[in-house]
């Protein structure tokens, strides 16, 4: 590519620097040694300067913001909207889940700590209630069964009551299973003594 016929059409692009590096180099070598092409190239350069002087560049202040504002007004595709909504709801759900789990953990811990005291409180209340019926039967074991469960009829906890003047329960029996139906149960609160009488089977 050394003839002026080949170089000539490329001179405009050469002046604008739009050619590949090796083509730019060949043309530059040719222009340096060819007065005709050098003149044409100079004409292209002058023409370019003139054109750039005539063209008024638009003002670009705020252009990016305007573009972004228009982009924001555009409605994104449905799958993009769906993905965004899912992501937002997932984060919110995780937050609520975390808070719920935290509440459950605190409730469980509170239950663990409070339950023994609550049971004691409930036991004391049952004892006071049963103390008023201290003369009533505490345990009843029918004689027609071989294995009986003696329990207090007033509640699930077979509390052995103490005297009404002494509300502190010394012994609470929550379950009593005996082979012998002739089981007896005494309580002597003044002696802090409870007796389970299980005679031998006849």
């Amino acid at each position: 590519m050394t003839s002026c016929d080949e170089i000539g059409p490329l001179l405009g692009a050469f002046e604008d620097g739009e050619l590949k590096p090796h083509v730019m180099r060949d043309i530059a070598l040719h222009v340096a040694s060819c007065a005709s092409c050098s003149g044409v190239s100079a004409d292209y350069a002058i023409l370019g300067h003139k054109l750039r002087e005539t063209v008024v560049e638009p003002a670009l202040e705020g252009f990016a913001d305007q573009v972004m504002a228009r982009v924001a007004c555009l409605q994104p595709p449905w799958h993009v909207r769906l993905a965004r909504r899912l992501a937002a709801s997932s984060a919110q759900a995780n937050t609520w889940l975390s808070m719920g789990a935290m509440a459950v953990a605190m409730a469980a811990l509170t239950a663990i700590i409070v339950t023994p005291y609550a049971q004691r409180f409930a036991g004391g209340a049952a004892a006071v209630q049963l103390a008023s019926n201290a003369r009533e039967p505490v345990a009843q074991a029918p004689a027609n069964t071989s294995r009986q469960i003696a329990s207090v009829s007033a509640g699930p906890s077979a509390t052995v009551p103490v005297a009404a003047s002494q509300p502190d329960v010394q012994t609470e029996i929550s379950r009593l299973e005996v082979d012998n139906p002739a089981v007896a149960l005494w309580n002597a609160p003044e002696n802090d003594t409870t007796v389970i009488w299980v005679p031998d089977q006849p």
Partner: peptide
Amino acid sequence: VLFQGPRPVMTTELRLKRHAVLMIGGPH
């Protein structure tokens, strides 16, 4: 749990205070 030999004759669950005494009686 009170055993007579291998046989359980009484099973009970209870709460006993430290100052209290539980007496199980009856066997000859």
